[in-house]
């Protein structure tokens, strides 16, 4: 699958996108793997102060917010495009 990073997550990962080949069964599992891979700079933008994974971020699976796809249990397929944004906004 393709993972796209935005804003502060590009600083944390030093990339804007990557292909992910390792098997993961769910979005939650992917986020845990990414936190492990990229360390605290990544972790702080995707885990909220209560320790909830994904609590802060805007995470899209093929353009749909993960919260409308079953949350962290959302099943991922090899052709999915995952977009991860840290908590940012504008107007």
């Amino acid at each position: 699958m393709m993972i796209r990073y935005f804003a502060m997550l590009r600083d944390a990962t030093h990339r804007s996108e990557q292909m992910w080949d390792s098997p993961v069964s769910s979005l939650g599992e992917l986020l845990i793997a990414l936190c492990k891979s990229y360390g605290p700079e990544f972790h702080k933008w995707v885990v909220d102060e209560k320790g909830n994974l994904g609590g802060l971020s805007i995470i899209l699976v093929n353009g749909t917010d993960y919260r409308h796809l079953g949350g962290l249990d959302a099943h991922l397929n090899e052709n999915d495009v995952i977009a991860i944004f840290p908590p940012v906004a504008g107007g």
């Binding site: 935005f6 804003a7 504008g90 107007g91």
Partner: peptide
Amino acid sequence: NPVGGTGLRVYGTNVLVNILNQVG
């Protein structure tokens, strides 16, 4: 607040371009 405290200062409002594009 991560938005009011960090995100807007670092990237400005224009950080929305990719978000709105990614949700179509």
